[in-house]
């Protein structure tokens, strides 16, 4: 069944005095995702609409947007499942806007790599399985797809432009939890400041919107526990 859906899309081009919204009507069926609808608009109605996307299956993390006010990967949100006659589509927040639905992710990536997290982790799946000859143990990639939804949803990031943010601190916790060949102390020192883990005000929105179950809020709290423990030990003159 095809239904006509109105999209209220955030628009802005460099040099515009202010952003505005444009309305587009797109026929959507039960398989139409918000990303597909945006691409349809670009192809059939307005070729100047800018957006980021790549894989179309929630792996690349490039198509993050605010859909009806909530951070989502637009490639896996089906339009008719939203149940609203008008769907509002906006760019991620707490990152500099470039154009329309595209934000500058440089600051996000810079923080994320600064945590020095190894990109592979010990696999927790099939713990009893015997690895093939020549392989010590199973490993897998980290969960985070670097989509930036967590930073957009974070109320603290909206009040501190130097805040390290949930994704970077979740990465820092991974570097502490499983340092592999790295050094977890670097990550701990990196987050131990007023723009780091102590800035978090425990709203948990980062974990709510994370599409990969990274649970950044838990990572930040674990960093705090670790740092508090170390401080207490230092207070009593115990070195570790």
């Amino acid at each position: 069944m095809t239904k006509e859906i109105t999209f209220k899309v955030f628009r802005y081009k460099q040099g515009d005095p202010a952003p505005h919204y444009d309305r587009f009507t797109v026929p959507c069926d039960e398989n139409t995702t918000v990303l597909i609808a945006m691409q349809d608009i670009r192809r059939d109605q307005d070729p100047t609409l800018m957006l980021r996307h790549s894989c179309h299956h929630a792996s690349c993390g490039t198509c993050g947007m605010r859909i009806n006010g909530k951070e989502e990967l637009s490639c896996v949100v089906k339009v008719l499942d939203l149940g609203t006659p008008t769907v509002t589509v906006e760019p991620l927040e707490n990152l500099p806007l470039i154009s329309d639905l595209v934000v500058d992710m440089t600051g996000f990536y810079q923080r994320y790599t600064a945590a020095r997290m190894p990109y592979i982790r010990q696999s927790e799946f099939n713990p009893g399985a015997e690895p093939p000859e020549g392989i010590d143990r199973y490993t897998r990639y980290e969960n985070c797809i670097e989509c930036g939804l967590c930073l957009s949803a974070c109320p603290v990031a909206g009040s501190d432009a130097e805040y390290l943010g949930p994704a970077a601190m979740a990465a820092a916790w991974r570097a502490v939890e499983e340092p592999r060949n790295g050094d977890g102390k670097h990550a701990l020192n990196w987050v131990d400041n007023e723009h780091g883990c102590w800035r978090c005000h425990i709203a948990f929105e980062c974990s709510e919107v994370c599409p990969s179950n990274v649970d950044p809020a838990a990572g930040i709290m674990n960093l705090r526990r670790k740092l508090t423990g170390s401080s207490l030990l230092r207070l009593f003159g115990i070195k570790r």
Partner: peptide, 17 residues
């Protein structure tokens, strides 16, 4: 602390409160 790039959005400035 290592310098981090500001994520300030000048087009959509936010009021912290």
């Amino acid at each position: 602390m290592q310098d981090v790039q500001s994520t300030q959005d000048t087009v959509r400035p936010k009021r912290p409160l």
